[in-house]
Design a protein around this nucleic acid. Structure first.
Length: 641
RNA sequence: GGCGGUGUAGCUCAGCGGUUAGAGCACUCGGCUCAUACCCGGGGUGUCGCUGGUUCAAUUCCAGCCACCGCUACCA
């Protein structure tokens, strides 16, 4: 049994309803960087990521694709794993919430909390969108009581549910946060969470009956366990479910749960309280990072601005992408992504500063010393300052890495790169060579190579594929004892080493060409926001289940006290229909009088604001624009097929 | 509405009760030539959001205002 210090870090388990984007890549790269760094510092590390595969959305997506949920997610998980391979993610385990051991442990823990009385049966009442089959809060539905997703009216609904007695633990939670001020980071998020809990905690609804793609509640098979309860358990089940349980003994509690800022509350309130109820130790800290914004805007499928990390890696190389992410995102802040920003980072930091430093170092050793690193026999007046800085950097860099301030750590490290470039200009080895000052020349070239060794070791957790290329060029590929954190002692690089000059590490990006290539999209193409992806194939029979009819608008009025609802009286052949539609933001009530529109005539009626809506009008929506579908010159009642 | 935060060079941000307010990028001039048209050096603009207050002294503390942002539970 090792007595090394341990380090357990996790990412969220991602939801396989779609492929992952650059934001997910950020979280996972950050966790991977941290795990590699800790490993290098001698920690026994465990790095967990995975997938959160249950829930209604998956079930619906699978159904739409004509697949079983398990089959559906299996295919997406392949893409997840492929992405992590491309990004050089070295995780120790990949947990899936459909893994047998996860399901078993999740049920055990749910049962335990139930047995001790902290889960009880009651009734959940909320605003419900039948269309989206989703509950919403008062705040989410707003005054108009419309679905925040689809804009249709919602209704109140009751559901028998199990509730988790969160409120019971509120005081204990607050005390814990007082005693552990670094548990929630950054501090701004901590304050938000504390403020939230101070306003009082309600018990959490932790079971669902409206769908069945989930882990069954062990003592009541009508219910499945709420996806967040299910998902959060992964951090423990992954350890407990493996082998003899020694992983759990060794690594729990986790040192860091790395999460995006959007899911901080689940990780800092619900999860700790679950652990309190289970009488298990809490993790050391939850770090909520910002988002990767695209042109200062949130990434989203509907905006069509989702960035695929695999494309970036293929185009720019994985090391560059990882460096960009880790360098660009400030602690707790959002960062911007654009291809130009990425290109600038690559050119300035990686190509010009770092890559070129290696290039000029190997270039001169090759040219002036027959490719051999000679011993530093005669120092120049510039050596002391450079060496002092190199010696001081590991401590500074390490302190920032320990605090997970990756961007600052890299910024600190690059000060040494810049210093080395300046050192070369000051010492001017080409002049020393010309003057025949071999002693000084060999010192300068030695120092340059040694700085490169230092920087490369420290940069390795961020760019894990980089060192072997550099070691090969510096001629120390085989000497692994020179690649470690412990070897960051100035002067370990052995004289007599034969270097082998190679290709540039990071070719410069032609930014002008990049800009030119981006331009052609601008003209006329009316800012085509990439359209929504086409839904999975359906059969003619699927379509035939819908009965679409032409209807004529006989009357239309605004529904009182709502912002979005219009009430239509429609002529459908010989009958009349009353239909509500959430389009009041787009049409005045009298605008549509007499027009022929398209109605889903066999949609199950639903009561909204006390009015029964007998169908649904079709409309097209793009961004903030909406137009109803018209069917001019056709009599009402005509069937659409 | 409630609570909290931010507002500093063209951009991203650092900073701080007290000498001429900083970094990187962008821009520009000069130098060098080992190097990936690279590196090194010089240069400039900032009413440090607005208005008051405390102080010998505020960009830095306090108040008000304006602007922007975050949180305000059961959506993964």
């Amino acid at each position: 049994m090792s007595d090394k210090k341990t380090f357990y870090i996790t990412t969220p388990i991602y939801y396989p309803s779609d492929n992952l984007h650059i934001g997910h890549a950020y979280t996972t790269v950050a966790a991977d960087t941290m795990a590699r760094y800790k490993k290098m510092r001698g920690f026994d590390t465990y790095f967990l990521t995975g997938s959160d595969e249950h829930g209604q959305k998956i079930q619906r997506r699978a159904h739409a694709a004509g697949k079983q949920p398990q089959e559906f997610v299996n295919e997406i998980i392949i893409n997840f794993k492929h992405l992590w391979r491309v990004l050089e993610i070295d995780n120790d385990d990949f947990i899936r919430t459909t893994d047998e051991h996860h399901i078993r442990i999740c049920q055990e823990l749910f049962q335990k909390i139930y047995d001790q009385g902290d889960i009880y049966k009651s009734e959940y009442t909320g605003w419900y969108c039948t269309d989206c089959e989703t509950f919403f809060t008062e705040l989410q539905v707003g005054e108009g009581h419309v679905c925040p997703d689809c804009g249709r009216a919602v209704e109140t609904m009751k559901e028998e549910s199990y509730f988790f007695r969160m409120n019971k633990y509120a005081d204990r939670w607050l005390q814990f946060m007082t005693d552990n001020p670094d548990f929630i980071r950054p501090e701004s998020r901590r304050n938000e969470m504390i403020n939230f809990v101070r306003q009082g905690l309600e018990d959490l609804c932790v079971s669902r009956t409206t769908f069945d793609w989930g882990i069954p509640v062990p003592f009541d098979q009508k219910h499945v366990i709420y996806v967040w309860f299910d998902a959060l358990i992964n951090y423990i089940s992954a350890l407990k479910g493996q082998g003899d349980g020694s992983l759990y003994e060794k690594f729990w509690p986790a040192d860091v749960h790395l999460v995006g800022k959007d899911i901080i509350r689940f990780h800092t309130i619900i999860w700790p309280i679950m652990l309190m109820a289970l009488d298990l130790p809490l993790p050391e800290c939850v770090l909520g990072h910002g988002w990767v914004l695209i042109d200062s805007d949130k990434m989203s499928k509907s905006k069509g601005n989702v960035i695929d990390p695999i494309y970036l890696c293929e185009k720019y190389g994985v090391e560059a992408v990882r460096y960009f992410l880790m360098r660009e995102m400030g602690y707790g802040l959002d960062c911007n992504y654009s291809e130009e920003l990425l290109g600038r980072r690559i050119n300035n930091d990686l190509a010009n500063d770092y890559g070129n430093l290696l290039s000029r170092t190997t270039g001169m050793i090759e040219k002036f010393q027959g490719s051999v690193i000679e011993p530093p026999v005669e120092p120049t007046e510039f050596d002391a300052e450079l060496i002092a800085m190199a010696k001081a950097i590991p401590e500074k860099f390490g302190r920032l890495m320990d605090k997970m301030e990756w961007a600052n750590a890299l910024s600190e490290l690059w000060k040494l790169v810049n210093k080395a470039n300046k050192y070369i200009d000051d010492a001017a080895p080409w002049a020393l060579n010309k003057a025949g000052q071999q002693g000084k020349l060999s010192s300068v070239l030695y120092n340059m190579a040694e700085v490169l060794r230092f920087v490369t070791i420290m940069a390795a957790p961020v760019m894990p594929g980089l060192p072997k290329r550099v070691w090969r060029q510096l001629g120390i590929a085989e000497q692994t004892q020179l690649h470690t954190w412990e070897s960051l002692e100035w002067g370990r690089l052995p004289a007599g080493t034969k270097i082998s000059r190679g290709e540039p590490l990071f070719p410069r990006i032609d930014l002008a060409a990049l800009a030119a290539e981006a331009k052609p999209e601008a003209p006329e193409a009316p800012a085509a926001p990439a359209m929504e992806p086409i839904a999975p194939t359906c059969t003619i029979d699927d379509f035939a289940r819908l009965d679409l009819r032409v209807v004529k608008v006989l009357a239309c009025e605004k529904v009182a006290n709502t912002d979005k609802l219009l009430k239509f009286t429609l002529e459908l052949g010989t009958e009349q229909r009353t239909v509500l539609s959430g389009i009041a933001e787009f049409y005045q009530p009298d605008e549509l009088l007499g027009k022929n529109l398209v109605l889903i005539a066999n949609l199950q009626p639903v009561k909204i604001r006390g009015i029964e809506s007998q169908g649904m009008l079709l409309s097209a929506m793009e961004g903030k624009k909406l137009r109803v579908i018209e069917a001019p010159d056709m009599p009402s009642g005509a069937k659409i097929s």
